[in-house]
Design a protein around this nucleic acid. Sequence first.
RNA 1: GCGCCCAUAGCUCAGCUGGAUAGAGCACGAGACUUCUAAUCUUGAGGCCGCAGGUUCGAAUCCUGCUGGGCGCACCA
Length: 582
Amino acid sequence: MSKQQTLYAAYAAKIDAVLDALEAEAVLPAGTPRGNVAVEPPRDPSHGDLATNAAMVLAKQAKTNPRALAEKLVEKLADDPQIDAAEIAGPGFINLRLAHSNWLKELDLIAAQKSDYGRSTRGAGRTVNVEYVSANPTGPMHMGHCRGAVVGDALAALLEFGGHDVIREYYVNDAGAQVQTLARSAHLRYKEALGEDIGEIPEGFYPGEYLKPVGQKLADEFGDQYAAAPESEWLTLFREKSVAAMMDMIRTDLAMLGIHHDVFASEAELQAAGKPEAAEKWLRAHDLVYDGILEAPKGKTPEDWEPVELPLFRSTRFGDDQDRPIKKSDGNWTYFGADLAYHMQKADKADELIDIWGADHAGTVKRIKAAVAALSEGEGTAIPFDVKLVQMVQLLRGGEPVKMSKRSGNFITIADMVEEVGKDVVRFTMLTRKPEAQMDFDFAKVVEASKDNPVFYVQYAHARIHSTLRKAKAEAGVQPSADALDRMGDDEMTLIKQAAQFPRQVEAAALAREPHRIAFYLYDLAAAFHAFWNMGNDDPGKRIILAEDAELTAARLFLADQIGQVIRNGLALLGVEAVEEL
RNA sequence: GCGCCCAUAGCUCAGCUGGAUAGAGCACGAGACUUCUAAUCUUGAGGCCGCAGGUUCGAAUCCUGCUGGGCGCACCA
């Protein structure tokens, strides 16, 4: 990867240097914090190419007013030959107009860095563990898992592109009551496979058809050995076998979405290794776990309420409503009790933890954050830990809610979705809404091939670029070339400037942990390209391929090629294919 | 009753972590094009950023309190 700086980074550094100079001249006090100084494109392009709020942010420390400080900054900036104009505007913004050559250089940078354009080293040396999906291994992946899966996967890619080492992790809940139920349900199907009439699947068992092949496989492997045997003889064995089968199925489902985890962490193994005990011991030693009576939830006392003494974690110290049990009255760990130990296990191999959870688990965020804070502080330094909540998705078909019946085990699976609309549509659509807001997913709308559909719109831009390059080569024998880039006009510059946003968009998205920003950025970039393309309709002189001007054609092809590269890079982060034709 | 999330154009949503006159698509109004690179294009109108306070040079953005919607609320996961 080239060491060359992107344009925005370069100008941020220039502003920084000017501020250094002002400190040296004692206009600014030495060591003035600059955290709020921003170098951004102004919202209104007529204001210029770049704007900085430096004078407004620092005026107070300089004991002067923003415009006066701006004067001093502008004085120094105007000396730079790369800056065509530096003007003070509004309350104290400094607007910069850059020589075209700056932007053209950015185009060269894209061409040089290719799929690495936008990659940064900001996160270098820091390993981030992103835990996502972690669906219970009791059935196929369904709709409810989809959004978190996509958001988590895109976030992982984004952080990786931002220079982090990323561990993509899946927590397999193979130790609780649910996998016991799974084992019993598999045993039913096993008996069924042996020819027994099992009738209706009783209450308390998983009714789904997907367990039939599991039962068949067990029958093939064990014959009728366990058909009449007491549960104690087969429960553990069947649990392991059926969990393994479920995980195979889940991995297949995830692969359909293009998702592959690095680590599948087993809760059963975690417990077998005694990790929860170790955590409990430490917490008790620090008075963060005590034996106490669980209070009834306020305002809603269940009728069968019974006070029980349990080992409780003092999550109220961290803002939770009540202290939370880490063990059940039967002596087993609660989900939470094991989960806090699990987070410590993850922390062994990472500098930062991120969990992606469904909004239905929002109520448990406080306790786990509290536990991680307590335990990681105990180990020395608190580990940064973030829980990203992904809100519900409502499935629609032509505006009508899709009906699902959980009781019959008949729900929309991820496999169904991907088969119907395709991986790219599922992924991109899931990223066209900020994760903390609810969203609708309409099967009818998301496959529409029109500009109303962002997936299509972005892919169409890429396909157009590809076909143009191909056509130019085949029909006119012209290849992209940077030789005549100085002939680029204002319309081309607009497009180039949009493409040059990519690195800072990536950085901002990574920092905010918001991959959806990339989707919106790509939509804007595609819009800019389509707008440029459409100019050729009214004015043939603005087309990319010009029969009578091979030199300008080559330059515009070069531009188009780089736009395509940026679209590819962005789509790669989202895990969406950059198709070459539609 | 409590906690978390959301509320921006008629509709669906952005708004770059406090900046300049709040943006896009759809729908609506006006015009262009008759297939040329149209699975269209240009342009117009459309806003009390849910409400009320507060913080400051400056708020859709931060804080407090309401209103409305979603999710969750004992040992489940």
